Simulated scan of single mutants.
Amino acid sequence: MNINLSPNSELHQSIVRVPDLVQVPDIWLDQARQFQQVMMHYTCAIREVKTKLEVLNDELSVKNQRNPIEMIKSRVKKPLSIVEKLQRRGLEVSLESMVKNLDDVAGVRIICSFVDDIYEVAEMLVRQDDVRVIAVKDYIKNPKPNGYRSYHMIIEVPVFFTDSKQFIRVEVQIRTIAMDFWASLDHELKYKKSFFDTDGEISGELKQCADVIAQTDEKMLEIRKRIEAQGVEVRRD
């Protein structure tokens, strides 16, 4: 069934504008249930990925006396963001189009202490035989022009339901604390700076900040390795 997700669609009207006491057509209810079910699938896929990461982190905390993962964040893309992204790409705004064309409806962000932790965590995750790697973009080795750095993967993980097993796509972003700090502030300023940054001065300063942060990440990793070279383990209590 082709389910229209656009703000002017009947499904949107039935969910947002129709009072509780008004009789809602069955077809609208059916479409709403289908949308809810698909979004539940993405939520379950996030849970699967987070469990894998938590198990790996717990193992390494015992094995190496150090947790490479500082924090795990997750989100399911909001309906309005889904609609806007499909429209930007000139794609049909429907449930089927979302599932087929969008790889980042489900997202997991992993925050690590050091740059080498990023690659270690990524390698451990994709080594698992039930994880399918769809795409990888290394914005650490190849930063975006604005200075953005992060390691991105699109993966598929199996989710077991009562009557089926489905592979669901999840976008995984892995970055250091410093990278996450910069990206969060840049995102917060994204729309504001478009009104005031006509000469590109603010963008240039943000790019300089990103470069400084990257240099700090490299220096912190170098210091950790120097300490470890003396036979002292760097651990997080």
Rank of each mutant, 00 (worst) to 15 (best):
P143L: 01
M124G: 11
Y148R: 09
V126R: 02
V157C: 04
D130H: 07
V121A: 01
V136S: 11
D117S: 05
V115C: 06
I134A: 07
Q128L: 04
N142W: 00
D116E: 14
V157I: 05
Y148V: 09
P143I: 03
K137Y: 12
V131Y: 01
F114K: 05
V159Q: 13
P145W: 08
D163T: 08
D117W: 01
S164D: 15
R132Y: 03
I118P: 03
K165E: 15
S164V: 09
T162L: 13
R132Q: 12
K141Y: 02
F161N: 12
M153F: 00
I154A: 14
E120S: 12
A178F: 14
I140C: 03
R127V: 00
S164K: 15
F160A: 14
F114M: 07
D163W: 05
K141R: 11
Y139S: 07
I154Y: 14
M124A: 06
I154V: 14
Q166V: 13
F161Q: 13
A122E: 04
I134T: 08
V115D: 05
M124T: 01
V131D: 03
V131M: 03
I174G: 02
T176S: 11
R132N: 08
Y151L: 15
Q166F: 02
V133Y: 02
E120F: 05
S164P: 08
M124W: 01
I177T: 11
P158G: 09
N142Y: 03
E156W: 05
V115S: 11
V126T: 08
Q166K: 15
A122V: 05
L125D: 01
S150F: 02
P158C: 08
V126N: 00
D117P: 06
V115N: 04
D129K: 06
Q128F: 00
V131R: 02
E120V: 00
D130Y: 06
R149L: 09
A122K: 08
V136E: 15
K141S: 09
Y139H: 08
R127E: 14
I155A: 15
A135N: 15
I155F: 14
Y151P: 05
V159C: 15
R127F: 01
Q128G: 03
P143D: 06
K165I: 14
S164A: 14
P145V: 10
K165V: 15
T162V: 11
I174T: 09
V131K: 02
Y139Q: 04
D117V: 00
I168A: 12
V136K: 14
E156G: 05
P143K: 04
N146D: 15
D116Y: 06
M124E: 10
E171P: 11
M153W: 05
I118N: 02
N142Q: 07
D130N: 14
D130C: 05
A122M: 08
A135M: 09
Q173P: 13
K141W: 00
A178Q: 12
Y148L: 10
T162M: 11
N146Q: 14
S150E: 11
I177K: 12
R175C: 12
I177F: 12
P143H: 04
G147H: 13
Y151R: 06
A178Y: 13
K165H: 06
G147M: 11
D116Q: 09
M153H: 03
V126Q: 01
I134V: 14
